[in-house]
Design a protein around this nucleic acid. Structure first.
Length: 293
DNA sequence: AACCAGGAGGAAT
DNA sequence: ATTCCTCATGGT
């Protein structure tokens, strides 16, 4: 068992992080201890890191603990990346002070972009989430992970591509997947197992290069590719105009009769560049029922 | 009871 | 190149 303490530049509100992450029933969140168990891979080795908040929004610090001492350094780096501890939010807040998102940003001050714990898992989750309401999507994902994934130290890992690639469509139909979702998920996993798609290799490429590559995969459209860049890789400037949640958030913010067209969305978002991912994130937060008072 | 849901692919225009 | 239709099922 090892531990490590890390100071972070504020503002950074970990309680808001836990609030958002707890929407996913797979996340093991402890509000009382202000902690979460984070399942990650160091290479192919799965491990669970406990992340506990110690400080406040303006003086944040964290304590990490894990069991496999030999992989500590890589694990700490990965956790820093997932929780974006090296990206101070202050200047991003300043950027939005003169925009329509000013109030939303001040209400959710210190909300960082948190990466999904694994890029492949991010894609899987996106495919499951396509066109489903959030609560059912989370239920469906959790069913899938708890049936074909594995548990370690109380945290859940998504099924490996090797596992998913061998599944039959019918096995996923039993979990309430549609036939197409099942085909998308199995097909994507087979591409990865056959090394026709290498998600690690994508990390060195530009947003547009990655989108062009991913959109060729059956079951991955622009929305999924953009969400992969945003939550899988933590890229800062994505604005998924096809996203119903963002459309509804804009409708509410601008008091529109109907959801905005994508042309209107492009106009709205001009001032938010080059931090469109944060605009997206805070817009999502603005309509999260669990955080609406 | 309809209509929508943090879409995508394939067919029909 | 756009527009339309279908997919499965839970939530509201």
């Amino acid at each position: 068992m090892w531990t490590e303490s890390i100071d972070v530049i504020g503002p950074y509100n970990f309680d808001l992080v836990l609030d958002r992450l707890s929407n996913d029933p797979l996340h093991v969140v402890d509000f009382h201890n202000r902690s979460i168990k984070v399942p990650i891979f160091s290479g192919t080795i799965p491990m669970v890191i406990q992340v506990e908040a110690l400080g406040s929004t303006d003086a944040p610090s964290f304590r990490l603990s894990g069991s496999l001492g030999e992989h500590k350094e890589a694990a700490v780096d990965r956790i820093k990346d997932i929780f974006q501890w090296n990206l101070p939010l202050e200047h991003i807040h300043k950027h939005f002070e003169s925009t329509m998102l000013k109030d939303i940003f001040s209400e959710h001050r210190g909300t960082p972009l948190i990466l999904d714990f694994d890029p492949y898992g991010c894609l899987v989750k996106c495919i499951v989430h396509q066109q489903l309401n959030l609560s059912f999507a989370y239920t469906l994902t959790a069913q899938y992970v708890k049936t074909y994934g594995f548990e370690m130290d109380g945290a859940w890992f998504y099924p490996l591509p090797e596992t998913a690639a061998r599944l039959e469509v019918e096995q996923l139909r039993e979990l309430q997947f549609s036939t197409r979702k099942a085909e998308y998920l199995i097909g994507l996993s087979q591409l990865i197992v056959n090394k026709e798609l290498d998600l690690e290799e994508l990390k060195g490429q530009s947003d547009t290069e990655i989108i062009d590559t991913l959109v060729k995969v059956r079951g991955i459209g622009r929305w999924t590719a953009e969400n992969f860049l945003l939550f899988g890789l933590g890229r800062p400037n994505l604005f998924p105009v096809a996203d119903i949640g963002i459309q509804n958030a804009l409708k509410k913010l601008y008091k529109l009769e109907q959801k905005p067209t994508k042309e209107e969305m492009e106009v709205f978002s001009q001032n938010w560049d080059p931090y469109l991912s944060y605009a997206s994130l805070y817009l999502w937060r603005s309509i999260d029922k669990r955080s609406e008072k």
